[in-house]
Design a protein around this nucleic acid. Structure first.
Lengths: 216, 216
DNA sequence: GTCTATAAGATGATAGAC
DNA sequence: GTCTATCATCTTATAGAC
C-alpha cells in the first residue's frame, strides 16, 4: 500500500478520535498526515469514505491485538476483569473514543453507518465467542443469549466511554457497579438443584409473558 | 420568555437530533426556527451555548413527563419493562438520539460537556431513586450500588441508541438479552438462607480482591 | 501520484439600519 | 429585538500543471 494512503488512514482515525465527527475535515486529516488536501479525494473519493476505511482498519488492528487475551478467558470473572482492563487501556489509546465518534456520525452518514455496523459486528462477534465458551457450563446458558448479550455489552462500552469523556468519576462508578453485579452471576453458577429448578421455572414463565406481550 | 428564544431552543434540539453534531450550525437552527441567523448569537452568544441550553430544557421536559411512570415502579421486572417501553417511545420522539449526539459533541466542546454532564446526572438521579426503592428489600442491595448502577444503565442506553441507528436488529437483540438477564436478579431475590449466606461470603471475597488489586 | 489553484458554497460572528 | 449586509475563514471537490 502506498505510503500516502496509509498515512491518511491513520491520520483520519487519529483526527476522529481527537477532534470528533464535528471537527473532522479533509484539511484537518491531510495536515495530520503531512500531505496535500486534494489527495483525500484522489485516494478515497470523499471524506466519509476515508473515515470509514480508517475506522475499519483500526478496528481490525485492535481486535487482532486483543485476540489472544480473549482466547485465554476461561470464566466470567476473568471476562469482567478483561473488560475492565480493556476499558483502561482503550481510554489511553482512544480506540473506543474513535468508535463512539464513528457511531455518532453514522446516524446521518451512509458510509459511516456501514463502517459502524462493521465495527460493532466485529467486536460483538469476538465477545460473543467468549461468552458462549464461558457460559456453556453454567445454568445461565439457559437464559442468556450470547449473541444478544455480546451486542448489549459492546454498545454499553460505547455509551460508558462517552460518559467517561464528560464525567470520569460517574463512568467509573458505573463500571464498578457492573463488576460487582458479576458476583451475582457467579452465585447462580453455584446454585443447588432446587434453586436451579426454580430458576428454570421462572425463565419459562417470563418467556410466556414476553410472547403474549408481543402478541398484543 | 420571548417567542424567538423558545423557537430557537426547540429548533436546536430538533436539529441536533435529526442532523447530528456534525450537521448543526447557526443557519440550520435558525432556518428551522424560521428566524434570522444573527439572532442565535444575539440571544445565546455562540451555537454551542444555544445547543447546551436547548438540551438542558429538553432533558428537563422529558424527565418531567416520565416522573409519574418512574414513581409507580415497585419491582425490578416492572423497572425493566419501563426501560423497554421508554426505549421504544424515545426511539420515536428521539430524545435519547439527541442526547447521544450531545454526548458525542461534548467530548470536544466545553459548553456541550457541561450540558452532557447535567443530562446524565438528571437521568441517573431519577433511575437511582427507583433502583434504591426497588432493590431495598432484596439481598442484591448488599452488592448493588444504586448510584453506580443507575449511571451504568443511563450510559448504556446512549450506547444502545447509537447502535440502534446503524443496526436495529442487533440493538433489539441486545435489549432482549438484558431483559432476560433480569430473571437472574429475580431468582436471587427469592434465595433461601443458605444460598443467601453463600452470596454474602462471595461478595466479601470479591471486595477484598478488588481492594488488593487497586493497592498494586 | 502529488502538487497548486480555484471554484462554489457554508460557517461563526459582527456592524449597523430599522 | 430583529433584520440586512458583510467579514474572514472554512468546507468539499475539481481541473490542470508537473
Amino acid at each position: 500500500m502506498s505510503d500516502t494512503r496509509s498515512r491518511l488512514l491513520t491520520a483520519a482515525a487519529d483526527a476522529l478520535r481527537d477532534d470528533g465527527v464535528a471537527g473532522i475535515s479533509a484539511r484537518v486529516i491531510a495536515a495530520r498526515a503531512g500531505v496535500n488536501q486534494a489527495l483525500v479525494f484522489y485516494h478515497f473519493g470523499t471524506v466519509s469514505e476515508l473515515v470509514a476505511a480508517a475506522t475499519r482498519d483500526a478496528v481490525d488492528a485492535r481486535l487482532e491485538l486483543y485476540r489472544n487475551d480473549f482466547a485465554q478467558v476461561e470464566s466470567l470473572p476473568e471476562l469482567l476483569h478483561l473488560g475492565r482492563a480493556l476499558h483502561e487501556r482503550e481510554r489511553e489509546v482512544g480506540n473506543v473514543r474513535m468508535m463512539a465518534q464513528l457511531m455518532a456520525g453514522a446516524q446521518q452518514d451512509a458510509a459511516l453507518a456501514t463502517a459502524g455496523r462493521y465495527a460493532m459486528q466485529a467486536w460483538s462477534d469476538e465477545v460473543e465467542a467468549v461468552l458462549r465458551r464461558v457460559l456453556a457450563p453454567s445454568p445461565i446458558a439457559v437464559i442468556a443469549d450470547p449473541a444478544g448479550l455480546a451486542r448489549a455489552v459492546s454498545a454499553s462500552f460505547i455509551g460508558i466511554q462517552l460518559y467517561d469523556g464528560v464525567d470520569a468519576a460517574g463512568a467509573g462508578a458505573g463500571l464498578d457497579a457492573l463488576e460487582q453485579l458479576g458476583v451475582l452471576v457467579e452465585v447462580v453458577d453455584e446454585l443447588g438443584p432446587i434453586a436451579r429448578r426454580a430458576l428454570l421455572a421462572k425463565v419459562r414463565k417470563q418467556r410466556r409473558r414476553a410472547k403474549s406481550d408481543s402478541a398484543v
